[in-house]
Amino acid sequence: MRRALLAITGLAAGTTAMVVLKGSPGAAPVAQDLPAERPTVVPAPAGPTPSGGDTAGTPQPADSTASPRPGRTATRAPTSRPSATTRAPSAPRTTTKPPPAPTTRTVTGPVVENEYGNVQVQITLSGTRIVDVVALELPEETAQSDQRSEQVDGRYSGSSGLVVQRQSADVDTVSGATATSTSYKRSLQAAIDRAN
């Protein structure tokens, strides 16, 4: 029984293979689709080619310089394409550092004398900007000179005084305290000159 089953299976497999290979009766062979970029190459004949005769039936070698026949494409030399992973060189990275914080420094002007006493001014700078002014010495010999000194100091000195607002020694003279104002401006201008 096993033998009979094996024989039937073998016969069925053989018949199926023949039908597939041969195709159904009356069916035309199916043409294979060849890629358009690869023309069919016909090998050169092994023997000498007939001379002067009809060569229509004789296969001819493919000529890459001849123009392609209708229905065929010319053979092209492969072109080099950049790789998908090839990248153009990128620009170098530049890092921008924040500007350094301005340094704070103090500069002291000289002592300037007048008939009421001595005047000396000190300025504080952040970078090149005046941020504060202090009178280190002002006349205080009498009550009147002390009062005039307070007026000058109140108008010019401090972080919100006229000197910081104008960033120079070009400030208006305090009325009634001309000598002290003049001495203050001279010491201030000398401190500004030293700072530069």
Rank of each mutant, 00 (worst) to 15 (best):
R2H: 14
R2P: 12
A4E: 12
L5C: 04
L5E: 12
L6N: 09
A7D: 07
I8E: 12
T9V: 14
G10T: 05
L11G: 06
T15C: 12
T15I: 14
T16C: 08
T16K: 06
A17E: 10
M18C: 11
V19E: 07
V19L: 13
L21R: 13
K22M: 13
K22P: 08
S24T: 13
S24A: 14
A27S: 15
A27Y: 12
A27F: 11
A27Q: 15
A28F: 08
A28K: 13
P35Q: 07
A36Y: 06
E37W: 15
P39W: 02
T40C: 11
V41C: 08
P43Q: 10
A44W: 03
G47H: 07
G47E: 05
P48R: 14
P48G: 15
T49S: 09
T49P: 08
P50Q: 07
P50L: 09
S51W: 08
G52I: 04
T55I: 08
A56V: 10
G57A: 12
P59V: 07
D63C: 05
T65V: 10
A66R: 05
P70C: 04
A74V: 04
T75W: 11
R76N: 09
R76I: 03
A77D: 11
S80Y: 05
S83I: 05
A84L: 14
S90P: 04
A91D: 05
A91R: 03
T94H: 00
K97T: 04
K97A: 04
P98I: 00
P99W: 03
P100D: 09
P102R: 01
P102S: 01
V107K: 04
V107I: 15
V107C: 11
V111Q: 09
V111M: 08
E113Q: 13
E113N: 15
Y116N: 08
Y116V: 08
G117L: 04
G117K: 02
V119E: 04
Q120Y: 04
V121G: 01
Q122V: 12
T124D: 02
L125I: 04
L125Q: 05
L125G: 01
S126W: 08
T128G: 06
V131H: 03
V134I: 14
L136Q: 10
E137Q: 15
E137V: 07
A143T: 15
Q144A: 14
R148F: 15
E150G: 05
Q151W: 10
D153Y: 03
R155N: 10
Y156I: 02
S159N: 12
G161Q: 01
L162Q: 04
Q165L: 05
S168T: 12
A169N: 03
V171G: 01
T173I: 01
A179K: 05
T180R: 00
T180A: 00
S181Q: 06
S183C: 05
Y184V: 03
K185C: 03
R186L: 11
R186Y: 06
S187I: 05
S187A: 06
L188E: 00
L188Q: 00
Q189L: 07
Q189D: 05
A190S: 06
A190V: 10
A191Y: 00
A191N: 00
A191C: 01
D193Y: 03
R194Q: 15
R194F: 10
